[in-house]
Amino acid sequence: MCGNNMSAPLPAIVPAARKASAAVIFLHGLGDTGHGWAEAFAGIRTPHVKYICPHAPTMPVSLNMNMRMPSWFDIVSLSPDATEDESGIKRAAENIKALIDQEVKNGIPSTRIVLGGFSQGGALSLYTALTTKQKLGGVLALSCWLPLRNSFPQAAADVGNKDVPVLQCHGEADPLVPLMFGCLTVQKLKSLMNPNNITFKTYPGMAHSSCPQEMDNIKDFIETNLPQID
């Protein structure tokens, strides 16, 4: 996951119950690991789908007084006009593209891969989907925002995912990444991609977390866009 850093932990994986013909790559939020989301996906698993939940590298995070914690890139502030870690975001996106390539080498076409994430991981999944030439099967963007949004549409000029289905979800009571971020993000996505393929769901009372209804919506999205093929 981190270039040549052999000490990077291997992703948490929920293997397919039968031969995997599709995969979900899902990126956790700041300070977390892939284990919790792997457990969540194990609860809604689809038999032919493999779920891959990588762990972010540990690094100092400006937002948290430079404490070292799992983070895909540095975050200075959660305000809309904050300085962003452009080089870190781009480097992290390249690592995720390499992970997608690895699954393609394993025999799963990129069009049978859903990329997604929560919070910082969701932000990275959106940026990666919009800047990769790999055609994906879908994108899950939970409680997140679009990083480096001012670099679009230029950065997305050659993107192969303009028509990819997107499920964006947000808690209406999120105190960390306010619902406004989600609303601004979906507007931006609809200007860059096919708006008919973007679904935005909000959940009353949900904070910066998940809920059973959201997990049901995620399960439906995965089964619709990664159907059984054998």
Rank of each mutant, 00 (worst) to 15 (best):
H28F: 06
A40K: 14
W145F: 14
A17K: 04
F41Y: 11
P212C: 07
R45H: 07
L10K: 09
G182F: 02
C53K: 00
A22P: 08
M59D: 09
N106T: 13
P60I: 15
G43P: 07
A157L: 12
S143R: 02
I25D: 00
I96K: 02
G3Y: 11
I75E: 00
F41W: 06
E223G: 08
G88Q: 07
V159D: 03
M65C: 10
M67K: 08
D174I: 14
T46C: 08
G122K: 07
I198N: 04
E94M: 05
I108N: 12
M193L: 04
G160V: 11
P47E: 14
C169S: 11
F200E: 03
V166Q: 07
Q120G: 07
P60K: 14
Q120L: 09
P57L: 14
A98R: 09
I229Y: 02
R68H: 04
L142V: 15
L130Q: 00
S210D: 10
P11L: 05
Y203F: 11
K133I: 15
M6L: 15
K201C: 10
L99V: 14
I198T: 07
K90Q: 15
P9S: 01
P11C: 09
D81Q: 05
A98L: 01
V61L: 02
S119I: 03
P109S: 13
M65W: 04
A156Y: 04
L30W: 01
S79C: 08
F221S: 00
M206N: 07
G117Y: 02
I198W: 00
D85K: 01
F200D: 08
Q187K: 13
L192D: 08
R18T: 15
R68F: 04
A92F: 04
P11F: 01
F26N: 00
